[in-house]
Computed example of a mutant assay.
Amino acid sequence: MSRRGGTFVPVAGLTIFAIASGYLMSLIPLITNEFKLSQDLVSWLASSYYCGLLLGSLLIEPIVARIGHRIAFIGFVALLALTVITMPLLPSQQVWLFARFIAGIAVAGIFVVIESWLLIGDKKERAKRLGFYMTSLYGGTTLGQFGISTVGTSGFEPFIAILALLCCAMLPPLLFKQGQPALSHPQSMSLGQISQLRKPALIGCLVSGILMGSIYGLMPLSLQQSGISNDKISLLMAAIILGGMLIQPVISWLSTRVSKSLLMAMASLVGVFAMGIIHFDNSFNIMLAMLALLGMSAFALYPIAITLACDDLDSSFIVAATQVMLFSYSLGSATGPLVADKFMKTEDGLTAFFFVIYLATAIYMLIASAKRKPEVLAS
């Protein structure tokens, strides 16, 4: 595999895609009124997207095996771009729900392609490549939040900007035709084998999906309803994602030294602390700091959980296990915004929702960690 094509192509394509996706995810909750659609539609749009992600997590592998990583990435980005074009041209509830569902399938394809592209090959290089992956994903998503203040949240201009970025994301695999990984045929997992995966790993991915689906799907709208301007919303959303990006090296270091169940409990307690502080003081500077902590805790759960799931597995089952984890994450992402929407009508809104989810997760993970005492410290 060409080292340049093997790493540069997926990372470059992912970075540009992440900028477009980050802007689009925060734009949709803020632009429904612009196209005369009810704000009650927002949570359903988020759930429709994550239902697509859920379905896509089950369908993508055969497609990649048949056409290869490079063409698959181009195809899935093009499919996502088609949904972006459709939304402003056909502003109706049914069309937008369907478009976001198809977008979810496309994004699931993009994630499976990029993750497997970077994981296939020299095992010694995997950690480094995944570091590039996480940094590119979160860094690009953070930059995308500034589209709210620079391009805006009205008219066709935001969709045109997102479409242009997605077209640019297709350029690396179009220009560099070498370097995609050789196609492999990993083993599938039976239902019995899936049931033997560590329960804290499955719960961790499920909770991560609940949190991330609600953050991306409802947080911008929640902030707007609190009277916060679009410029400040972009800063607060960027703080969430930047917090998630900055915590990754710390998580990588701690995961070899601390029980992963205990580590997920610690991450959840950080979220409990952040939401508790916001309940008592919701000034902008405090919110900026606490939402960064929210991002750290929310973005930490998935990589810890997926690592825990794969710890004792034979390498031939790694891809199947990660697909199960993505399914669990997508299930949480699809249901989270619907439950969170009920909390939006209360005084504390999403703050109360996140507090309850984090507290329940922390208690569960502490109990799970106590049951696995030998895992507390790595040898």
Rank of each mutant, 00 (worst) to 15 (best):
M170Y: 11
F101R: 10
S38Y: 02
M170E: 04
D341I: 01
L291N: 01
D341L: 00
Y49F: 15
D231N: 11
V113T: 13
I203L: 15
T322E: 11
I60Q: 14
I203N: 07
L89H: 02
C168W: 13
G179E: 05
A164H: 00
S2G: 04
V77S: 04
A309N: 11
A370T: 00
T83A: 11
D314K: 07
L197N: 15
Y133W: 15
L163A: 05
C167E: 10
I67W: 09
Y50A: 07
G131E: 04
Q178F: 07
S184N: 12
L53P: 04
E61W: 06
V107F: 08
L166K: 09
S57L: 06
A106V: 14
K232P: 00
A362S: 12
L291A: 01
I105P: 09
L288S: 10
A352C: 03
L366E: 00
K371S: 09
L350F: 05
G336H: 04
L143I: 14
F299Q: 14
L119H: 04
F146K: 02
V84C: 09
L291R: 01
G139D: 11
Q94G: 08
A274Y: 02
M290N: 15
G56A: 04
P88N: 09
F353N: 08
L269K: 12
Q225C: 02
G155P: 13
L223Q: 03
I74F: 00
L14C: 01
A300H: 08
F146Q: 13
F343K: 12
L235Y: 14
L118A: 10
L246P: 02
I63M: 12
E34Y: 07
G213H: 01
I233Q: 00
L183E: 13
T32V: 15
K36R: 12
V270N: 08
A362E: 07
I67A: 07
S195F: 15
M87N: 05
R126F: 13
K371Q: 14
L211D: 08
H185K: 04
M365A: 14
I63G: 08
S2F: 06
V151R: 07
L166R: 05
I19K: 01
A274M: 09
P62H: 02
G295K: 02
G349C: 14
D122Y: 08
F273T: 15
I60K: 12
W253H: 15
L235K: 10
Q39P: 00
F98H: 01
L53N: 02
D341G: 09
A267Y: 03
G22T: 11
D314G: 10
T346M: 07
S261A: 10
V376I: 10
L221P: 01
V207D: 10
G147I: 05
T7K: 08
L14N: 10
L301Y: 03
V250W: 03
N282R: 00
L119T: 15
S214D: 02
F73Q: 03
S92F: 08
V64L: 06
M275R: 01
T32D: 08
L293D: 09
A12L: 14
A18S: 13
F76S: 01
S226F: 05
S92V: 00
V42G: 06
G13V: 12
V95G: 00
T86A: 13
L30W: 05
I251T: 14
V84H: 12
E347I: 05
L53D: 03
S234Y: 03
T322L: 15
A320G: 13
A289S: 15
A274F: 02
S92Q: 08
E157G: 01
F156P: 11
S283V: 08
F159K: 06
